[in-house]
């Protein structure tokens, strides 16, 4: 499987994703500049964390008008794998490829920590290697990570199994302790925590590795 990691001005977790794919699961990966307008030849697209365009206007708001975006939208519509971490999650909500929005943390501070998440749905392209309700430890680093959506959207997401990860301790004040959600079709995932920073024990946790292995597992099944 060949992944594209999109590099926007201000992305700073692009190499973390790159190494997670190359060394964590031994798959093909290339960095793709935001000014490119083709993702032909790739099987999945990864949108890294960081501060695209300096978080000007709103986190992710400027990035959605970059040339590469129409290809990300195409991937999402065609059912291909699209995964956004942190700022990548913010970009996917700004694009309306995922419901809701990310706003300033409830408690007036940037949070940099390793937190416990619950795998709420293990029947997704991104979580099929985890157990249901498995506890995983994944780093977070964000100032605008409070997930917000209206009640109707929340109930729809619960009914569709779109809530994939919840914080065990609601660190940023997110609606329903939401840490990560998919689209209805299940091929687009966004999450604030950084699984790409938890792919080997020396990093403090290897609990993120199974997310990337799940994608491969899913793709093998789709291809057969």
């Amino acid at each position: 499987m060949k992944f594209a990691v999109i590099n926007f001005p201000g992305s700073n977790c692009d190499m973390d994703l790159y190494y997670a794919i190359r060394d964590g699961i031994n798959e093909k990966v290339e960095l793709v500049d935001y000014r490119n307008n083709s993702l032909v030849g790739f099987d999945g697209v990864l949108i890294p964390g960081g501060f695209s365009y300096g978080d000007y206007l709103r986190s992710g708001a400027i990035a959605v008008h970059a040339p590469i975006i129409k290809e990300i939208v195409r991937f999402a519509k065609e059912g291909k794998i699209v995964f956004g971490v942190c700022n990548g999650f913010q970009i996917l909500t700004e694009l309306n490829l995922l419901p809701g929005a990310l706003v300033q943390n409830e408690k007036n501070r940037f949070i940099c920590d390793t937190v416990d998440l619950t795998v709420v749905n293990n029947q997704t392209a991104f979580t099929n290697c985890y157990q249901k309700n498995e506890n995983i430890r994944i780093p977070i680093a964000h100032g605008e990570g409070r997930y917000h959506c209206d009640e109707t959207t929340l109930q729809e997401m619960i009914a569709n199994g779109q809530i994939v990860f919840r914080y065990q301790d609601n660190v940023n004040g997110s609606v329903d302790q939401i840490a990560g959600v998919t689209n209805k079709n299940g091929n687009v995932l966004g999450m604030m925590p950084h699984p790409e920073r938890a792919v080997e024990d020396i990093l403090g946790s290897a609990d993120g590795l199974k997310l990337f292995q799940s994608i491969i597992n899913y793709q093998v099944k789709v291809n057969n």
């Binding site: 706003v103 300033q104 943390n105 409830e106 408690k107 007036n108 409070r146 917000h148 209206d150 004040g173």
Partner: peptide
């Protein structure tokens, strides 16, 4: 401005 239904964390801090 933020909708009334969304907590304005910056407004609260100010």
């Amino acid at each position: 401005t933020l909708k009334k239904s969304v907590l304005d964390a910056q407004g609260e801090a100010i």
